[in-house]
């Protein structure tokens, strides 16, 4: 089950945690959790169930990191782009990636699940453990933030 959805699990973890090493650890930990919790799985679609485990695993990790290094937000492999850098970029891969990375966690996760994983609102609701109405409003908010972020760079070009 985990191996079949490995790319989806990794992609979500990579987006939520921001680096490869943590993402790999989180997915490995999730696969163990998934196996242990297999008896709780009901239904026919294991993907949202598995991704909800990955999501919770990532959140636990972020919470742990926040306690250890409170001011580490965004400082992963490379320093984040300065506002000037952001402004001169067009809607290219890099700026889109930066824009999504700059979103607060719950909006980022909504975008990743909807746009990259192509999940339905119902599936996203299952992954995030929220009502469908909340999925709708989070996604709307996330897209508005993205649009603002990308428009700033567009206008300044």
């Amino acid at each position: 089950m985990v191996l079949r959805n490995l790319d989806a699990a990794y992609n979500l973890a990579r987006w939520l945690l921001g680096n490869d090493a943590d993402a790999q650890d989180a997915v490995q930990e999730s696969s163990i959790r998934a196996y242990e919790a297999l008896h709780t799985f009901r239904g026919s679609d294991p993907k949202p169930w598995l991704l909800s485990i990955v999501r919770n695993q990532c959140r636990n990790r972020l919470r742990g990191q926040a306690r250890l290094i409170p001011l580490d937000e965004g400082a992963g492999e490379a320093p984040g782009p300065s506002p000037q850098d952001m402004a001169i970029r067009s809607w290219e891969g890099e700026s889109v990636r930066d824009a999504i990375e700059s979103l607060p966690l719950e909006y980022r996760e909504a975008i990743v699940l909807r746009e990259l994983e192509d999940m339905s609102y119902k599936q996203i609701a299952e992954v995030a453990g929220i009502p469908i109405g909340t999925v709708m409003s989070r996604l709307a908010r996330a897209r508005n933030l993205l649009r603002e972020c990308l428009s700033v760079s567009e206008e300044a070009k």
């Binding site: 790319d7 990794y10 809607w91 891969g93 889109v96 990636r97 990259l116 993205l146 990308l150």
Partner: peptide, 11 residues
């Protein structure tokens, strides 16, 4: 833009 430009990180 998100669909086409954002990287999908394969495992």
């Amino acid at each position: 833009a998100a669909r086409q430009q954002a990287p999908y990180y394969t495992a």
